[in-house]
Design a protein around this nucleic acid. Sequence first.
DNA 1: CAATATTGTTAGATTGTACTAATAATTTGT
DNA 2: ACAAATTATTAGTACAATCTAACAATATTG
Lengths: 220, 220
Amino acid sequence: MISQTEENYLKALFALTSTKGEASVNELSKMLDIKMPTVNGMMKRLSEKDFVIYESYKPLKLTEKGRKEASLIIRKHRLTEMYLVEKMGFGWEEVHDIAEQIEHIQSPAFFAKMDEILGFPEVDPHGSPIPDENGKVIVKDFDRLSDCESGDVVKFMAVKPSSEELLKFLNSRELVLGAVITIQSVELFDKSMSVNYAHREMEVLSNMVCEKLLVEHVAK
Amino acid sequence: MISQTEENYLKALFALTSTKGEASVNELSKMLDIKMPTVNGMMKRLSEKDFVIYESYKPLKLTEKGRKEASLIIRKHRLTEMYLVEKMGFGWEEVHDIAEQIEHIQSPAFFAKMDEILGFPEVDPHGSPIPDENGKVIVKDFDRLSDCESGDVVKFMAVKPSSEELLKFLNSRELVLGAVITIQSVELFDKSMSVNYAHREMEVLSNMVCEKLLVEHVAK
DNA sequence: CAATATTGTTAGATTGTACTAATAATTTGT
DNA sequence: ACAAATTATTAGTACAATCTAACAATATTG
């Protein structure tokens, strides 16, 4: 059996290792806001249980078992977020904290039902992919809007996990997933962009915002 | 703050005290399947936190604060059961264990949304009343079917909390809440009843079953 | 490359939630 | 009413998950 606490460590480690494949105790400690010695001890426990590869002074890695376990928790989290938005009427900025709790519910039937009711969605309300029942994820590597150029026409596909505030900002600009964005111009000194989308024209998006928006180039 | 463990003790104590107003450490211990010394210690903790009135060798009582807290957990439990049945398509025999977990979710918005979507239901799928946001419950004292007599015409209003098996048995007999039951006869030696309801005639219900079914007498 | 800063580890304490064994108080039954 | 049974409590242990303080290893940088 695996505790909620352990699940949270695995999830955080999964997020940290998804880029470089490894992470430090220090990074994990900061991400979870738990002191290093505590994290260290937990890494030993999780390595004992074969979820983590831990060797003194070496970077942390997840085992295949650990990766799968983490993916399945993320699956439950993202299915829940989708359910809350699609079936209960929550805004995409409201669902993270609730899903953070519901992801620990032990009931395959419950999540299977959600999945079915939602019609087996592939992404959550923020565009992040939902791992399948075996923990497999199809990762699409979108471009950051901030890496695009003036004249590009792109489709808004996902938001990088960030603050509720960013989501509220996007709400206020009516910038929703799927929107087709045309980049009118890019400011040289601060890299802010003027963009058009839907019925909105010349909306200015700061570079901080553009770095969080993931897009796909649209055929010209 | 109150832990999930503490919530479970409060809920159990609430159930036990709802009849006589008090309960013993021993009863609580049996109900929770936790040894008496552990229960004893927890009672001290909960009395420290002003949820329970605890004095050595005296019966346990809930404080008003404790009663309210417990009611609100039961509210979350029953709202969840209703939601699972009405909105997700689960059977009434499947929802207890899931609700047992979801009742600990901390998110007033989540339960408010459930409540709203359900249209502010007053009872759960087993006919048990759902406490309001202030922890107030309207307890109707139904009769047990086992206390009725031959010739009585009654309406099936609720099932006493019991096993999944009883609920499955009722499913198999198509005996649902709201059914109007006519008692044809009562066996003297084992108190089993022959009843009619809906399109079913002369169904035999053992006394064990009849004791679990709560009914309301219908105008003759 | 040595001094300094950062990161990682060990040791020991604390809190919450459980247990067993021993003892004490209360209740029951003859 | 007293012995026996039941129930309650205390004392001591264990483990999970956290912390701080002290120390060790690795990394950075002048």
